[in-house]
């Protein structure tokens, strides 16, 4: 029998190894699995490379992971927040955390490429800019493209809305954002949901993330 449900959030994040690359869904606060991140804080994994759109803000769990010196590298498109992020700004200025800045669409596509078994792709994004420095560029049909390599996550932490025991997922509104592409890209994909429903409840036409990508689901009621 397939049953991806775990009883508690501590079980959900069990076994995340030091040095892991961790994909974190979300766009600002929308769709960010803050409760899983709190559990990772308690779980203790360190030397992490985190891949996400923003780098936290205010006093959220991402900022506290950074403040606790648990993050070696941040791969993101926009490490700024309207709430401010003085912790990241300080660590960046002191070169205590590495930043790989990736255009947002390239970030999504590198993750997709990782999930899809591709060796890379050529994109027009960033051609002729400093974010293409050191990367192979090729001209196709008169247009310049930049070679981008895939990202594969050792772990993906994803927030969805509803799941079943097979790990099929639906999302809530704009909180979908990076969830589907990251869920498919984690070697270990861990999902927090508001509720787990009986198998067969989710309409197959409406499932956004097929359960094959998902390893663990924890129900949080929020």
């Amino acid at each position: 029998m397939i049953d991806k449900r775990v009883a508690c959030i501590e079980d959900a994040v069990r076994g995340i190894a030091d040095g892991s690359t961790v994909l974190i869904s979300g766009f600002g606060d929308s769709g960010t699995p803050f409760e899983l991140l709190e559990a990772v804080l308690d779980q203790g994994a360190r030397d992490l490379e985190i891949v996400l759109n923003n780098a936290g803000g205010g006093d959220d769990a991402i900022v506290r992971l950074l403040a606790a010196d648990r993050v070696r590298k941040v791969v993101c498109s926009y490490p700024r927040s309207s709430l401010g992020n003085p912790v990241f700004d300080r660590l960046y200025a002191e070169r205590k955390v590495e930043l790989e800045l990736v255009p947002q669409g390239t970030l999504a596509e590198r993750i997709r490429a990782g999930s899809a078994g591709l060796g890379g792709f050529y994109t027009p994004t960033a051609a002729g800019t400093r974010l293409a420095d050191g990367k192979e560029q090729r001209v196709f049909e008169g247009r310049t493209y930049v070679l981008e390599r895939p990202i594969v996550g050792d772990v993906a932490l994803v927030k969805a809305y509803r799941a079943d025991r097979w790990g099929n997922l639906v999302y809530h509104s704009a909180a979908r954002n990076f969830g589907p592409v990251m869920a498919a890209c984690g070697r270990l994909t861990i999902v927090q949901v508001k509720e787990i429903v009986a198998l067969g409840t989710l309409d197959p036409e409406h499932v956004v993330t097929p359960g094959i990508y998902v390893d663990r689901v924890v129900e949080l009621g929020i």
């Binding site: 498109s77 700004d89 200025a93 800045l101 390239t106 027009p124 994004t125 051609a127 974010l131």
Partner: peptide
């Protein structure tokens, strides 16, 4: 500007 740079989706929009 010495803060960490952010690019967001600007480069994708500009070419797309």
């Amino acid at each position: 500007d010495n803060k960490a740079p952010g690019v967001g989706g600007a480069m994708d929009l500009a070419v797309g």
